[in-house]
Amino acid sequence: MQDSSTQVMAGDEPVIICREMNKWFGDFHVLRNISLEVMPQEVLVIIGPSGSGKSTLIRCINRLEEHQDGTIVVNGIELSHDVQNIAEIRRETGMVFQQFNLFPHLTVMDNITLAPMKVRHWARDRAEQRAMELLERVEIPEQAFKYPGQLSGGQQQRVAIARALAMEPKIMLFDEPTSALDPEMIKEVLDVMKELARTGMTMLVVTHEMGFAREVADRVIFMDMGRIVEEGPPENFFSPDIVHHPRTQEFLDQIL
């Protein structure tokens, strides 16, 4: 595994540290000895074939999945069975899902304001003001009082991004955010994510969008069979001149 912290980052301390992390689903060894550091403001893209453990990896970071071995430290807090630590980490990490997972019984506005009001104890005025700013940022302020079922997939995913951002997280986790979208909607979601990356958000993105990885990522990680096979800056990763690990080469040949 090569060291990638040669790049100049805004902070000096890594915001996410995984050391020798292992996870099993029953007998199936999903994540094997994952060691990873993410610096503040870094955009990390994780690619790999399905079943390689990339979604599981980012779901371990906010404890949607429990790792069984090794350590994960997020924002200086170690993930353990301590429920207060888990709650604190979840407050600082936003997550966007493949299936959007918006709350269908709440309006777009309520979807966005719910967590800031209930978790951060914001006043309604403040939460709603913030929600409108975010909706303008993802370019759908006119949809604020509709229900998720009345929106297109791309719009729903943009609301989901706004909902995660409303908690003002330090880290954003994207779990295949465009995989459930029609081709023309993919672009509108990716544009929002690019804009987010430009503002300096720390992002971990699991995706199959190689164009996005090439353009936005600071670092690309290739995973297979629960291992990090290869990592490096996108210029190197997608350059035909570099000699890749044979498994990486095989994957890249198939999708590029």
């Binding site: 906010n62 404890r63 949607l64 709650a87 979840r90 407050r91 990490t93 936003g94 997550m95 899902f97 299936q99 997972n101 918006l102 709350f103 269908p104 019984h105 719910l114 967590a115 209930k118 978790v119 909902r163 995660a164 908690m167 986790l173």
Partner: peptide, 25 residues
Amino acid sequence: KGQLEASRALGLSQADMLRLIILPQ
């Protein structure tokens, strides 16, 4: 299940999740 995961990822407490997300649905 995604509804539970989304609530957890947002940091909602167990009680709020039950009352505001699970029960109405």
